[in-house]
Amino acid sequence: MENQGERSIRWIATAFGVSIVASLGLAVVYLLGGQPQAEGALLGAALGGISVGLVLWAKHLMPGGPEVQEREIRPEVAEAQAEVEETLQAGAEPIERRTFLAKMLGAAFAAFGIALLFPIRSLGGAPGRALFRTAWRPGSRVVRADGSPVRPEELAVDGILTVFPETHTEAADSQTLLIHLPEDVQPPGPPGWVPEGFVAFSKICTHAGCPVGLYEAESKKLFCPCHQSVFDVVDGAKPTEGPATRPLPQLPLSIDDSGFLVAQGDFEEPVGPGFWNRGRDD
């Protein structure tokens, strides 16, 4: 028995000793400029030493139990409850007698509650038509993220480019994929929208709004990496797989007199994920 106790003491002291050494080491590492792995390991040893020491101490050198404690079964419950009820009712009586005042107070609270809602309005502008429009306008030049305009000859066949309307490269809702389809492919959309095989679709997934970032030139399909929706470019970017329900809206393109790609106007329907009144652009 004596032996057992002494052995425990030795182990516990060792654990605390490890902790002390690790803490000192941690201070040294920190003073020398810090090193994440060493910091983590030493901090772990410092904390772990204390933990192990405490566990052994509690297990071997402290009263273990089992202790038994009565759980109070409260016999006075019913009586006490009745008293509370009575007190509540007695206090409520003078309030209930003034029904008119009580109603007015209720109305005042309700009115105040409604008034309190208005500051919430300051948190954001009204949605208005924001979700129905993007920054594309008739004649907007098609530019890259760095603002440089795009000439048809700059994008190879089967090439893809993320583009924005000129001067609006920060407009997240206007991000558009420009794709150069080969000649032997019948391009989607009205013939006047796809000069020289250049098609453009909104880059925002119609499912949950992620950028539809992957294009497979061989199958002419766009993939959304978020939830694996697949859009068939040749078929007007209609979804063929995954949770998306609507095609990516198509941007009408043309080429201006200086030979740059331009938009003929905005997308004809809202881009991006669905919302309650998406179908009511009025």
């Binding site: 933990s51 405490l54 101490w57 509690a58 139990g65 089992p66 202790e67 404690q69 759980r71």
Partner: peptide, 22 residues
Amino acid sequence: GNVVGEKLWPTYMTKSMALFFG
């Protein structure tokens, strides 16, 4: 009608602290 276990002081508290450090 009862609770069987360890008293808060010192055993249970020590073990609990050990859990925190662990």
